[in-house]
Amino acid sequence: MWRVTILVLAAIYFLGPLAASLRFSLVQSNGKDGFGNYSRVLHDGALANALWTSLEIAAITTGILLVLMLPTVVWVRLRLPRLALLIETVSVLPIVIPPIVMGAGLAELQLHAGSAIDSALFASPISALTPFYVILALPFAYRSLDVGVRAIDLRTLVDAARSLGASWFTLITRVILPNVRTAVLTAASLAIALVLAEVVIAGTLLYDTYPVELVNQGQQDAGIAVALSVLSLAITWLLLFGISFLGNRAGPTRVGRLL
């Protein structure tokens, strides 16, 4: 009985808002039912621009994250196991810093931006936000890559590749990378989800990224904003489900394990 009670309550509480969003998004601004909100999404120039900016940030963030972290994780496991705990602690550190505090620090930096380097940094949302989104994504990325690298027989792979004359670059890109594919995909999808959702820092610095534009739209027109939310959710969930599915097939790295 207690089991049925909680399951029914959970079903109502968790599915209710999802069903309501779907239903709400299908009511057009003229009061009739239809896909009007969705077709307006596709014809919104400001939104398309913001989405493009966010996608660029997501792509560059993911790139920097992987280029920075995969060699680091491999190197630590291989050569500096005693530093593993230190690196893990440093990687998890960003969790302690709320996005709003990061945003406040950047706003302060921008205020005092005197030098050419500082002004160049804040010239566009891409250069201003990307380096710091990499930091925000570090905890997830480190954990998923570490789980992936720990699950393979790293030493054997490295010894084999090195004795066949592979350079470190070849080793990472052609030997390690294919073996930790799932972990890399997990890290990448979490980073993309983070960038497409991060509204606090971008909002504080007044940059017009996709989530900031979503908030602006919501203040003017709830119908279109809810339609957009439904779309964002569907895309994020497909991404996470896809990874979780791949993870189940390919081995030990799963989204659920990260938390």
Partner: peptide
């Protein structure tokens, strides 16, 4: 299990709009 893994990420702007719609 899968639902929780997915819903734990459901925060921020879309969640707010889902509650406005509800």
């Amino acid at each position: 299990g899968s639902g929780s893994a997915v819903l734990a990420y459901f925060a921020g702007v879309p969640l707010a709009f889902a509650f406005i719609a509800t």
